[in-house]
Design a protein around this nucleic acid. Sequence first.
DNA 1: GTCTATATGCTGATAGAC
DNA 2: GTCTATCAGCATATAGAC
Lengths: 195, 195
Amino acid sequence: MARKTGSHANITGPLVRQAAVRLFARHGYAAVSMRRIAAEVGVQAGALYLYTPDKQTLLFDLMRAHLEDLLASWEAEPKPAGAFRRLETFCRFHIRYHLERPDHVFIAYMELRNLEPENFAAIEALRRRYERALEEILEEGQKAGLFRVPDLRLATMAIIAMLTGVNTWYQEGGRLSREAVTGIYWDMVRRAVAS
Amino acid sequence: MARKTGSHANITGPLVRQAAVRLFARHGYAAVSMRRIAAEVGVQAGALYLYTPDKQTLLFDLMRAHLEDLLASWEAEPKPAGAFRRLETFCRFHIRYHLERPDHVFIAYMELRNLEPENFAAIEALRRRYERALEEILEEGQKAGLFRVPDLRLATMAIIAMLTGVNTWYQEGGRLSREAVTGIYWDMVRRAVAS
DNA sequence: GTCTATATGCTGATAGAC
DNA sequence: GTCTATCAGCATATAGAC
């Protein structure tokens, strides 16, 4: 891990964030010291403060970057016509995106309580924007008479919790492929909302 | 908070566990010091070690007690005949039980990573027993031709994630009563598995 | 049963040399 | 850009008085 003195500004920054994500996800924000992050990167603790003003901002920036990337990725996703196809697109996107970034997802859910109030509000606002994307699909299907959803907000939260739950048990190389899992979950969601 | 010197063995123990649950849920195990728990109870930090050998055991005992109580409560629940009624009973029980103990539930999910390997294994075994209870209901309905569940394990995990998710957003005195929320969730679960 | 005092060590963050 | 050295504070856990 030891690193010689020298100029590495362009690579050390990303390495710091990478190490922080890994360690925060494994052990939790409060349990990880700046020294440990530094050791993982191969620098001394003091050097971290070239890349973040403090530990709290490091956490906040990780969470914000994750949610902004989630929103941008969803907005970049091709949107087919029809509520069923849109909902299927959302379900497949959500599972795929979340399974690809388990550490970021874990942090974004588990470390909310370690954010200072101002930072917490900013993260929650981003999350709400994402939830609203699903809610709009459900609303569209409802209006078209394709879905029967007694409460849009509840159905939104139920579906997101169900889909995100895959991250808690899915193991690469396990009994089922991502594609198989995604198909089964989409089937359950479809039946849960179809009229 | 100050407490006079004296004999309080029978009440201080429960107060310690109560304070620990509250603080661990709010701030996280790693972020809460023994001093802070002691202050909440109204004793000095050293006195806590009369009630737990160390902080790790305190966490483990809280989680184990929670899961054992969950299992015992489910086993004590009256079991109606028929897979649909049994599934409805499970859904209503799960939401009710979890909404009544949000702090315990939060800890049981969020602090797994702060358990030492041996303790982690014990907690996971208890959780699996609870999941198995739902899986057996789904299996029964599947065999009776009432449910159409492509994969028992996936459906189990999906339903539990969905139901537990209520805890993340439900607020007492909000737009919907517990009863209304439970009814809507049961409806979604029913439609997701019915054949 | 609870207190005070203390050991040993780690924490986040900064200052200044190179 | 990174290092070493350091500050002031808090951590868990224990010892011994009352």
